[in-house]
Simulated scan of single mutants.
Amino acid sequence: MRAPSPRAVAVGRSLAGGAFLAAVVWRVGPRPFVEGLRSIEPTTLLAAGLLTGLATAACAWRWALVSRCVDVGVAFPTALRACYLAQLLNLVVPGGVAGDVHRGWRHGSATGRRLRSLGSVVGERSAGQLVQVVLLASALVLLPSPVPRTTVAVVAGLTTVGLVAVVALGLRPSTRAVVDRRVVVGVVAASAAATTAHVATLVLAARGVGVGLPLDRLVPLALLVLVVAALPLNVAGWGPREGMAVWAFAAGGPGAAAGVATATAYGVLVLLVHVPALALLPRRERPALLTEGATSG
């Protein structure tokens, strides 16, 4: 049986994201989206920018650590610029992974080790997702949560096994990342810092739209939304994030509309603070990247 082409996969991802988004609009209507947009204020945008800077630095540090384990070392300043640009591309190109493909490919082209460079990106991104899942499971068990603990254990276990397999695949050219304790500790610390910054940004968005839940109830909802938002089944970042926000906020108390307004404010905030990254992309690459990213992302 013939494997689907990259373009077909990209189209399928976009259609899935569009279906999520259409279902959300059908469920709550357009008003929560408008409320989310109206809630954004300059002080909130500034705070989101600072938190994004922290998250980006943490992700760059993680990539620098992992890349050295597969002998394609990325200097931290280079990693910082590449991660900032990659996050913008993930937000504007359907699929949510085009930016990561781009940074891995560009670094691999510069070093002559494209496969290893792409593997380092796969490994560090998957390691970050693994830490995020562990933090989510811990929050759902230790804090008030709308998700039954048995469900948390089963889903977290299966997801962990899958992510560990992906990390191993990405780092297959070298096993030093597995045995080097300093790398493991650094990757976990960087991933926890990035996740904390993203959660704080979503909490800012929630407060901006009037969600008054105490933090011990809001943080698990934020983690749920963020974990699902990372699925590569979106339209420029939109779709699964809003779908999970509908369910989580409805089950957690504030209501589906509040969840959509929060997700909308969060999505617009992170997009606005990443727009300056466009200056890091050489002008000659912009049209080609958007075309290739839509087919490979």
Rank of each mutant, 00 (worst) to 15 (best):
A153S: 02
R149Q: 14
V209R: 01
G128R: 08
V161Q: 03
A137D: 04
G162M: 07
P173C: 07
P146E: 05
G170H: 00
V211A: 10
V155F: 08
L171R: 08
V164W: 13
L142G: 01
L130S: 01
S191L: 04
V133E: 05
G208T: 01
L213T: 05
T159P: 00
A137E: 02
A137V: 04
R217Q: 11
A190D: 08
L135M: 10
L213M: 12
V188T: 09
R176V: 15
G210A: 03
L169N: 09
G157F: 04
P146K: 04
L215K: 00
A206I: 02
A193L: 15
A206M: 07
T150R: 14
T151E: 13
L142W: 07
G186C: 11
V161F: 11
V152L: 04
R176D: 15
V209I: 06
T160N: 02
L142T: 08
V187N: 02
S191W: 06
L140V: 06
A200E: 03
L215M: 09
A190I: 10
L202G: 01
V185H: 12
V133Y: 09
R176P: 10
R207P: 04
V166M: 12
A193P: 09
R207S: 08
R182V: 12
V188M: 03
L169W: 15
V178L: 15
V185R: 14
S191K: 03
V184S: 13
T201K: 04
D180F: 12
G170R: 00
L135H: 05
L215A: 10
V187I: 13
V141D: 00
A205Y: 06
A193K: 04
A165N: 09
V209K: 01
L163D: 00
